[in-house]
Each structure stands twice: as C-alpha cells, then as structure tokens.
C-alpha cells in the first residue's frame, strides 16, 4: 500500500514539482510581446487610416476596435485563432481580439445545444467573469474618481 499520510503527501508534492517541467517563461513572454504588439499595431494602422479619411478621434478608435473584433471572430471560425493562441499565449488573449475569441469559441462549441441554452447561455462561459468583474471595477473606480476629483 502507498502511504497516504499528510507527511507522505507533502513529500510527494515535492517529487511532483521536480518531475513536472514548467512553462518556458522567457520564450512565451517574448512571443506574447511580439504577437500582442503586432495586434495592437494593426489596430493602430486601422485607426490612422480611418482618421485619414476624416473620421473623428472617438469614432476612429471605436471602428478600429470593431474591425479587430470582426477579424478575430473570422479567424476563430476558420480555426486559426486557436493556432495563434497556442503560439502567442497571453499575446493573443489580452487584446480585444482575445475577448472576441472567448465569446465566439463557446458559441461554436455549444451550437448543438440550441440557440438559447447552447449559444446564448454558453457564449459567456469564459468572457462572463471579465464582464462581471470589469463592470464592478469600473463602478468602484467611478466612485473613487467622483470623490477625488
């Protein structure tokens, strides 16, 4: 019998740590930096182009973000965003395109469960917490800003 005492579990945890390779932090960070930066640069190119055709600052930012979202959803649908994510990690998760991917991918996965309980409900499986805590954080920041102003 394997000893399952607390001290044996602690010893085993050390053994597991030694046997389990960690993620390649430096390489992953570099790739995330370059891919994330490229996505942001592409967004900036769209924005500059929109400004050049006479759009206002606010509208150009908004439309550039919308274009990135549509592109990310398209890449998700054809199965390329998951491949990009495998290489880029946080680099393709953190930008607005990652959020679009997080909404689109469960919508595809749960299509078979129907439009209401499948697509509609599961669409926010991953993005839901970001919306909930993002909205809460913005309220808190708003209150702090109100009193400090």
């Amino acid at each position: 019998m394997i000893n399952q005492s607390e001290s044996a579990k602690q010893g085993y945890a050390l053994l597991v740590e030694q046997a389990s390779p960690g993620s390649k932090l430096a390489a992953n960070s570099l790739r995330a930096f370059f891919v994330g930066g490229t996505i942001c640069a592409v967004g900036q190119i769209f924005k500059n182009a929109l400004l050049a055709v006479g759009m206002t600052q606010d509208n150009a930012s908004l439309v550039a973000a919308c274009i990135l979202i549509v592109l990310a959803v398209l890449l998700t649908v054809v199965g390329l965003y998951s491949k990009l994510g495998k290489i880029a990690g946080a680099g393709s998760i953190v930008p607005i395109t990652g959020f679009a991917n997080a909404i689109a991918s469960p919508a595809i996965e749960y299509k078979k469960e129907g439009l209401v309980l499948g697509v509609g409900a599961k669409m926010f499986l991953i993005a839901g917490p970001v919306i909930v805590y993002g909205a809460m954080a913005s309220v808190l920041v708003g209150i702090v800003y109100y009193f400090l102003r």
Binding site: S20, G22, S82, G89, S92, N101, A104, S105, E109, I126
Partner: peptide, 17 residues
C-alpha cells in the same frame, strides 16, 4: 475538451504537463 476543459477554438496554451 468540451466536457473537462475549454471550447476547441479558444486560443489558449496547454502546460507542458
């Protein structure tokens, strides 16, 4: 993947383990 982890098309990395 659907049962235990994430949707297939979600762009995440898998750890080496």
């Amino acid at each position: 993947e659907k049962t235990f982890r994430f949707p297939l098309e979600l762009g995440t990395q898998r750890p080496p383990t």
